[in-house]
Design a protein around this nucleic acid. Structure first.
Lengths: 160, 160
DNA sequence: AATGAAATAGTGCTGAT
DNA sequence: ATCAGCACTATTTCATT
């Protein structure tokens, strides 16, 4: 039996990789030549290192970060989901993925089977999503909602 | 009394802005000239639009997305925090921010006063963080942890 | 608010070490 | 895995509409 899939291997990352990661995870548009100057190596080296980090999956692309509130998404909530039976997990995730307002979905253990983050325009919009979209999904027994009144901070995992 | 601070104003976003946002939120390194070609406008126009989106806070920078597991961060948990008194909120957030493994922190209502996301290298690392770092913080009464066994998906708020 | 043109700067390749 | 150098392309500014 192949157990390799259970071993999520940490990548070989040296100090130069860490320095590169610190820079590009803070600003994806930074010119690689500027990274090169800060690291004291050539632009080509940075270019190849970033390519490698992408290839081995240490980084998975880049994005401009949108501020949900400026797009009218003023309500943020976390929700714990209880399933009728554990076997419904997969199909419930498939259904949740189809709801664009569900922006994060985790397979959890403990009190809930699934844990999601929801971003809606208003509280009314959230209510409609719970009453209409979520309660329609086969396999969901019951949900518990935690409203976020304010996001105090958000960041990526510490590098190094 | 100035109530403007309570009115989180959605920004004026036209179709061109939306098209730009869709492209740059999926790939922050996309050349603006390519965005320009896709939108049928000049590169300078994209440049000015993106600058404006940054200025009015619709986007707040860019980042390469790191895969925590590849850096050895294999444990992800959400945690609800009960406070001894609501007034401790601010100082608890300050203390939480100092713990790099706490990667997200929300002011919540309902069952918990504060809700956080934690990313640690191992379960042991999480245990240590809970026993040593968190229980030391003045104002925290008790915590409840939900372990994420797998992140099914994660994305940004829908544009348009 | 968008454009074209021009100067500056970065990217991505190659061949060499 | 690194480098320098080169041709190509992008960024950014500015006068103009």
């Amino acid at each position: 039996m192949d157990k390799s899939e259970y071993l999520e291997q940490a990548a070989d990352i040296d100090e130069l990789d860490e320095k590169i990661l610190k820079l590009i995870t803070k600003n994806a548009r930074i010119p690689f030549l500027e990274v090169a100057r800060e690291c004291g190596v050539s632009g080509a080296a940075i270019h190849q290192r970033v390519q490698r980090l992408l290839n081995i999956g240490v980084v998975s692309g880049s994005e401009f970060i949108v501020n949900p509130q400026k797009l009218g998404y003023n309500t943020c909530a976390y929700m714990g989901i209880h399933l009728e039976k554990a076997k419904f997990h997969k199909q419930v995730v498939v259904a949740l993925r189809k709801i664009p307002e569900v922006i994060e979905c985790h397979y959890t253990t403990g009190q809930y089977a699934i844990f999601i983050k929801i971003q809606t325009k208003t509280n009314k919009h959230l209510k409609r999503l719970i009453d209409e979209d979520l309660q329609e999904i086969e396999g969901i027994a019951r949900t518990e909602t935690f409203m976020s009144l304010e996001m105090d901070f958000k960041r990526q995992v510490p590098i190094q």
